[in-house]
């Protein structure tokens, strides 16, 4: 086991940083905000850490924290600037924000290293540190996926007007999602640059935007489990697809299309549906008994309950 982990250190590290990036996109998405700004946060976190470590001799962990906080601050400002946008318009604004940052990286001269970027960023961060950070983030996210807070978040996404009417401060929720998303995105970039020891403009381009979004949609939007499933799937896909050789990209495209058409809820949604159906099937005989005993409306109530808890 340890040997396997050691051999696949890079892939495991990639999975974890991609997972953090996906979480950074997922948090606003759960509030109905389609934001690609996470790529920009990732760039700030990555470049910030690289610059602090290689050019200013700042210690590894201080650099990581400072760069992540910087990303959170930029995210907060961005949240105010684009407050009145919605849907795909907001998505476009955040895409351009991220790609503008990538243009800054290309034109940043000796600070960002231009097209070559910054290399030789060697700190002491291991995949165990990264894994520990991921666990902390998961715990935090789980907290938002339970109870009252979770229902408020869902209401904000599904129908923001209704949510407002019910007394949920939609604007405040959405605005708060920016610094959180910014910090986690920045953290993802900071840890990624430590894993790869290098960062270049081409590693924070539109391709990464597309990858991160695909991961969430394929994995599932509603829960961190979806983000993790998606990250595992896409980071390890090239390993799995070795046998298709040159047709890897075609298989990738086809899989994404199938997922988009057939499983709108993502892999996790599919799993939940299956679990739901199975529990319904298991409960059906009992329900039938109940139906016989009591009125039809009671039975329906039981059925829907058992479906949810099962």
């Amino acid at each position: 086991m340890m040997g396997w982990i050691d051999q696949n250190e890079f892939l495991i590290g990639s999975t974890l940083t991609v997972f953090l990036l996906a979480i950074s996109i997922q948090i606003p998405l759960r509030l109905g905000v389609i934001s690609f700004a996470s790529i920009g946060y990732y760039a700030i976190g990555g470049y910030g850490t690289a610059i602090l470590m290689t050019q200013h001799g700042v210690s590894t962990w201080t650099s990581v924290v400072v760069a992540s906080v910087a990303a959170a601050v930029v995210a907060t400002l961005l949240g105010f600037i684009i407050a009145r946008l919605n849907g795909l318009y907001l998505a476009m604004a955040t895409v351009s924000f991220s790609l503008l940052l990538s243009a800054v990286a290309v034109n940043g001269g000796s600070i960002t290293g231009g097209a070559i970027g910054i290399f030789g960023v060697i700190g002491g961060i291991t995949i165990w540190h990264t894994a520990a950070i991921a666990v902390v983030i998961i715990i935090f996210v789980t907290f938002t996926e339970r109870g009252k807070l979770s229902r408020r978040i869902d209401a904000t996404r599904v129908d923001s007007q209704l949510a407002s009417a019910m007394g949920i401060n939609v604007t405040a929720y959405r605005r708060l999602s920016f610094p959180i998303s910014g910090f986690i995105g920045g953290l993802a970039g900071a840890l990624a640059v430590n894993l790869k020891t290098a960062i270049a403009p081409e590693s924070v381009n539109f391709t990464l935007v597309v990858l991160a979004l695909t991961i969430i949609i394929i994995g599932g939007q509603a829960s961190w489990v979806g983000a993790l499933a998606g990250s595992l799937f896409f980071v390890w896909l090239p390993e799995i697809l070795v046998f298709v050789g040159e047709w890897e990209e075609v298989v990738y495209g086809t899989l994404v299309v199938f997922a988009a058409v057939l499983i709108p809820g993502g892999v996790v949604g599919l799993f939940n549906d299956w679990r739901h159906r199975r529990s319904v099937a298991r409960e059906r005989p009992k329900v039938a008994l109940l139906e016989a005993a009591a009125g039809e409306s009671d039975a329906e109530l039981t059925q829907s309950r058992s479906g949810k808890d099962g």
Partner: peptide
């Protein structure tokens, strides 16, 4: 959007 992204890769 995702469907289009997948399609474009092919």
């Amino acid at each position: 959007v995702i469907g289009g992204i997948g399609l474009s890769a092919i």
